[in-house]
Simulated assay, not measured.
Amino acid sequence: MPRFLAFAALVFALPFFAGCGGCGGGRSAQRISGGGATFVNPLMQKWSGEYKTAKNVEIDYVSKGSGYGVEQMTAKTKDFGCSDAPMTKEQLAAAKEKGGDVVHIPLTMGAVAVVYNVPEISGKELKLTGDVLADIYLRDPSVRKWNAKRIADLNPGVALPDKDIVVVARAEKSGTSNIFSEYLSKVSGGKLKASTKPDWVQGVVGQEGNDGVAGFVKGNAGTIGYVELLFARKNELAAAKLKNKAGEWVSADADGVTAAAAEAIKAKPEKEPYSLHDLTYSLTDAAGAKSYPISGISYAILFAKLPKETGPTIVEFLKWATTDGQKFSKEMDYAPLPEELGKKIQEKLGQVTFE
């Protein structure tokens, strides 16, 4: 009988031991959700793992483009959205109806690399100016082939092939597209309009996500596209050198982004959508000899009033990401936030309220 009682006691105790996480003080992780920009996704996944270890909080992030991030945040199906394009007046009005004012928090900065796959010039450096790049995406007849005179003149000594240029762009609403098209708009005199989903001309091939564009370029000779720098490096894609506003040839790298940001944050922007928000800046076609011209900021977008159950956890994560979390930026080909901007971010997050 004593053995039976001992066995019974063990059976009844099993659920307790199974549910208490080993009874060593373990507890299930808190969980918050975000989604949007693919631009920031590699860094967000790194942050998620590091933050889970440090704070026992899980960050569920769905990478589906900036448009998705704004839509899901507005609908309150995600705790925060990520976008590389600040919200427009129309988007702000829709969000205000759902939950009031919104806050834009810079998370990181990065370069949009112009990637290409031209086997005939493998190992050679390709140079492009903004006006030539814009006309390639406008499918201008003067730059339909890789050996077009306008491209050849920029690349003396490079044996460019007599082959058609296959032009690739993002298919969905994308902050990367917004950064890229904003640059093309500036250097083309407005021939192209800055947008998360530009009205590309016929013949431009659409692909989903930074990874989709990178994969298509890698797998198809004769192609040109644009991706966040990490996707270019990860896929071992060649990236063009660009002539910046100061007339210098620069490569896509974190230092060039930092230089562009240093110029851009000197004054508050006067043009929409940047003028509609605190802490949003256009980094494209920035002044400065070292500035990389297709640079941008990825933002976390959230309501200024958050639920008291999850709000403090969301804010604490964003405070961590924009301070301690910045140490992971450069190793992943992003540019850390400037110290001056970091201080303003902490002040802004301190103004978020919970109800």
Rank of each mutant, 00 (worst) to 15 (best):
E309N: 15
S291Y: 01
E172K: 10
T74L: 11
I224T: 04
T284Y: 08
R150E: 15
P106H: 10
G209H: 09
V205D: 05
L349G: 03
Q45Y: 15
I59G: 09
G65M: 08
E248I: 00
G22Y: 04
E228V: 04
T38I: 12
L230A: 13
P336R: 04
D140Q: 08
L341Q: 12
Y299F: 15
N210E: 14
K145Y: 12
G175F: 07
K96D: 09
G24D: 13
Q351I: 01
F7P: 03
V187W: 02
G350P: 07
F354P: 05
L126Y: 05
G296M: 09
V158P: 03
V187S: 05
L230M: 13
A267K: 15
G25M: 08
A169K: 11
M332R: 13
T88L: 12
Y334H: 06
S329T: 14
P42H: 08
E50L: 14
A148Y: 03
S329K: 00
D162Q: 11
A169M: 04
A134P: 04
V167N: 07
K327M: 12
S185T: 13
H277V: 03
K245H: 10
L229G: 00
Q207S: 10
E347H: 09
K89I: 11
V167L: 06
V132A: 03
V112Y: 04
W200K: 00
L318F: 04
P15A: 10
A152C: 07
F12D: 06
S181Y: 04
V227L: 01
G325V: 04
A29M: 13
D84S: 15
D140P: 00
I59Q: 01
S275M: 01
K124E: 14
E272I: 07
R31H: 13
V257S: 01
G215I: 05
A152G: 05
F231E: 11
V112S: 10
G325F: 00
L242K: 06
Y51A: 06
K344Q: 14
